[in-house]
Design a protein around this nucleic acid. Sequence first.
RNA 1: UGGGGUGUAGCCAAGCGGUAAGGCAGCGGGUUUUGAUCCCGUCAUGCGUAGGUUCGAAUCCUACCACCCCAGCCA
Length: 557
Amino acid sequence: MTSESKPAHFLQNIIREDLAEGRVSQVVTRFPPEPNGYLHIGHAKSICLNFGLAREFGGTCNLRFDDTNPAKEEEEYVASIKQDVSWLGFEWADGAKYTSDYFDQLHEWALHLIREGKAYVCHLNPEQAREHRGTLTEPGKNSPYRDRSVEENLALFEQMKNGEMAEGECSLRAKIDMAAPNINLRDPVIYRIKKMAHHQTGDKWCVYPSYDFAHGQSDAIEGISHSICTLEFEDHKPLYDWFIENLPVPARPRQYEFARLNLNYTVVSKRKLKQLVDEKHVDGWDDPRMPTISGLRRRGVTPAAIRNFCEMIGVTRSDSVVDVGMLEYCIRDDLDKNAPRAMCVIEPLKVTLTNYPEGQKEMLSAPGHPVREDLPARELPFTRTVYIEQEDFREEANKKYKRLVLGKKVRLRNAYVIQAEEVVKNEAGEIVEVLCSVDLDTLGKDPADGVKPKGVIHWVSADDNVDCEVRLYDRLFDHPAPDAGGRNFLDHVNPENLKVLTGCKAEIGLAKAEPEQGYQFERNGYFCRDNKYGSAEKPVFNRTIGLRDSWAKEQNK
RNA sequence: UGGGGUGUAGCCAAGCGGUAAGGCAGCGGGUUUUGAUCCCGUCAUGCGUAGGUUCGAAUCCUACCACCCCAGCCA
């Protein structure tokens, strides 16, 4: 192991010190999604952080569904979240957990606060509560119900719990300080009435704890040593600590905040993603253009690429916008190392090798990967007629064009050197076929005259191939900040984010390609079979990401 | 005009008083049966601004500026 290790980020430093100084004996973290939507690339950062820290320090990480609001949550999301976390390569400690598992305990603690005179039932409705809360610059006013007796509060809370009060009629509030400069401390609601079934607890409750009252205590119950959340919860930390200090909790977890991921050319808000789905800009939540984990998976992005990306971007407390190019780099990097190579002609041009016997077929062997010898070689049928890419032939071209040119030579990748002799055109003047001669003495060696062709192009036998559809995906948006600065993100959907090509010809082995198995279609990009469309005979391949293309860059100069 | 945060290259990010790591992107070159990969080189006299302390400041002090978050019975 000679690789220089990456410098530790602030959370690693904190944990290291906590361990060294005995404040913490066992690292326990948690990833606490609310089951109200699909996970996306932003969640991946949190997942990698929490599970990664636990793994790094020999601890454990819980998957805890933060399900305190039955109005917004559904069982459906629980399953997809579990699948996505596992797919990313992480295992949660002993069974998925739910904040709702602790509703009894939380209720007990609410009673405890009431008995201590630190919580009261407030009959201010939501609008009145807002008026009493004050503003950012003015202190709030005490609720007229703030000084109810313990007995009265106990009785009233019991009625709330028993469904004897209407939703919004009253709430249970912590008695802290209506003049606190931190608005979260102005007697926050800790229990509200919601007369609806919960996906885990059914009809058992009609009062549900708020996030603030549930989160820290759940952390304490689970023995979470480091409760990591995003920056917007920073103002909640004093409240988090207040509950921990005022309740007989079994542990004293600490909250730490980090900056959430922002990616340019990308939108992740649930509302906007839903709009893209609803208005058919994409095919669904798992559309390959979506930044959801399921979309990335269908696109052919690997878990390792996402993990490496999360490692690469670091963990800090400063707001930042990561260039999506970094994600793309990580995707290419992983796929380059691991994806088997294959050939696929996306826009076919017929090439007939006039000096190759009609009806003859020979099998040529091609390596599965340029350096990975563990990836099996493939067999490529070679015949008199083959297809090459339309853009790989020109009747005339300058020296920079290193492909097939009339009268010139080029190598067919993994096969022979050919020379273009004649062009066949249709009435419209379009090139429909190129007649070439093949030099059969060039398999694995240069032509006898010693002149090495300067180009290599990919090809597929016209007689023995897999007819397929190829979907070329590009960035969903063509603006780096589609939803910033008052812009309407829908105005910046990239009109060329998808190009569907049919009649593409892939090498025969690709007939049995499996979804999620990425391939490099040489000289083209990385592709994987779609898990939703296509048939056994006619697969659909999604382009995960193109190869870096310095030729295109050169041409754009 | 309240409270809480954050400012190091186009982007991400180390640095914690001893003279600006690394990665992405870019640029130049080499290898190559993928215009890929890989390899080499290059890329901040400068750390939000202005002062101050010090032999020495991105690091300490003061003031200012910019940006982000908070007024759900959402999380």
